[in-house]
Nucleic acid binder design. Structure first.
Lengths: 168, 168
DNA sequence: AAAGATTGAGAGCTCAATCTTA
DNA sequence: TAAGATTGAGCTCTCAATCTTT
């Protein structure tokens, strides 16, 4: 019988090279990293059909789902978990493509309101069904019961990491 | 009662903004992406204590666990799932730091054998316990039964993606 | 002082092109 | 012709510095 996947082979190699180490955490984290990389690659293919990349779609989709469809760069940075500098540069690109616009904030002279243009709103509304179809196909391997189990486990994990960030 | 995590709030927003769409795949894929990003950030902190980053550690660890501790750039590219150009540049950096060396292949004049230097081997052997401790702490939230369930689900997912790559 | 937004420099990736050998 | 390795150009990120407003 052969190993089921590349991570099993990696664990076997470590068993030989460093038998003193407990490499069992890699069984989960190694697979998580590889699956996440594949998911990102598939999403990239989908977005490319619409002239977008994951970072651009993330901005457009975050605006689209927000009540009022309006956020500051600071809020977008927090949502995407990237630096404010990266957000400013993403917005420069999307603005050059005519998909978003910046407006001075009425409340706070330091801040900016980012909004979708009509073109940006139309585009994200077109991309969304294709994006969800891609994600659906990635999950097609699971039964409904497995989907439920995986959701529960990942929710527990994500909640634990968020708590860890709150209490450093 | 409040939502358990940020992904639940995102799903609620979509329910309002686009009630016609089935956004349920995001419940898994959104959490997977966020957990993976957190895992990478924690690993980056660990590697930085040893003057490394995730890409450099990946090369050193791949060599360390390989029988013979010797691979070609082509094999390293496949293992890390990155381009051959990125591999060449990683090797340039690690060679400049004295952690790996390139040797002409005896079998094939086009190819190169990449090996750890004694310094590179010592370093990866020092980093490994710290790296595994980081991964262990990330998984500390799970019971043994949950660990087993999650391993089984991710193995099924990873196997399905690998099969998909074989049959395009 | 502090917070929000932006810019420029530096790092690592991909893609396309190049060089060498099979 | 094709395969393996490498380089250079272009892109997007982070970090540090800057500018404006509170």
């Amino acid at each position: 019988m052969t190993s089921a996947d590349p991570v099993d082979q990696i664990l076997l190699q470590w068993k030989v090279a460093r038998p003193d180490l407990d490499t069992s955490p890699m069984a989960i984290i190694g697979r998580l990293s590889r699956v996440a990389a594949d998911v990102t690659a598939r999403q990239r293919d989908t977005f490319a059909r619409f002239g977008l990349d994951p970072s651009g779609f993330d901005v457009l989709a975050t605006l689209r789902r927000t009540p009022g469809e309006r956020l500051t760069p600071h809020q977008l940075s927090a949502s995407a978990m990237i630096s404010s500098a990266a957000t400013a540069q993403r917005l420069n690109r999307l603005q050059a493509d005519g998909l978003i616009q910046r407006r001075p904030s009425a409340d706070d002279g330091r801040s900016v309101q980012v909004e979708l243009t009509p073109e940006g709103r139309d585009l994200v509304d077109q991309v969304l069904p294709a994006h969800l179809a891609t994600e659906q196909s990635l999950l097609a391997v699971f039964t409904p019961a497995e989907t439920q189990r995986l959701t529960r486990l990942l929710t527990k994990w994500l909640t634990a990491t968020a708590d860890r960030h709150d209490l450093p």
